[in-house]
């Protein structure tokens, strides 16, 4: 999908500049990825920007990236960057997803199937 960069232009440097030196979180922030605020520690919410604080408060109960973005009314791309900052500071936890294709967790798919059968009756 991602095209090869032209010679001389390092895409790594450009990506780094784009996110102002932020590195990617170890878990991907998909639209459905759940995020949970954790105890912020002695500093509390001080030191967070207003946007980060709003995001933090939006996920005191676990919420998906989409729900958080809708609550704080910021673009999803921006919310992803801010969530990964908060995760690196240990203020929020990013949860995993069931996954697609061969990487999907079969046991979890089975639990989802059971849950849906229970609704379907």
């Amino acid at each position: 999908m991602i095209p090869t960069p032209p010679p001389g232009a390092s895409r790594r440097v450009r990506s780094y500049a784009l996110t102002l030196g932020r590195t990617r979180p170890s878990l991907p922030l998909l639209l459905e990825t759940l995020v949970t605020a954790v105890d912020p520690g002695p500093g509390g919410l001080a030191g967070m920007t207003p946007e980060q604080r709003n995001i933090y408060l939006a996920c005191t109960e676990s919420r998906s990236v989409t729900e958080i973005a809708t609550t704080v009314q910021l673009p999803i791309g921006v919310v992803r960057v801010l969530i990964s900052d908060l995760a690196q500071q240990g203020k929020v936890e990013i949860h995993r997803t069931v996954g697609s294709g061969p990487q999907a967790d079969t046991e979890l798919l089975e639990r989802i199937l059971h849950g849906l059968h229970a609704i379907a009756g």
């Binding site: 998909l30 639209l31 459905e32 990825t33 759940l34 949970t36 605020a37 954790v38 676990s62 998906s64 936890e93 949860h95 995993r96 997803t97 069931v98 967790d105 979890l108 798919l109 989802i112």
Partner: peptide
């Protein structure tokens, strides 16, 4: 935080 998992 208690571990959670989501799917879409």
């Amino acid at each position: 935080a208690p571990k959670k998992v989501s799917a879409k």
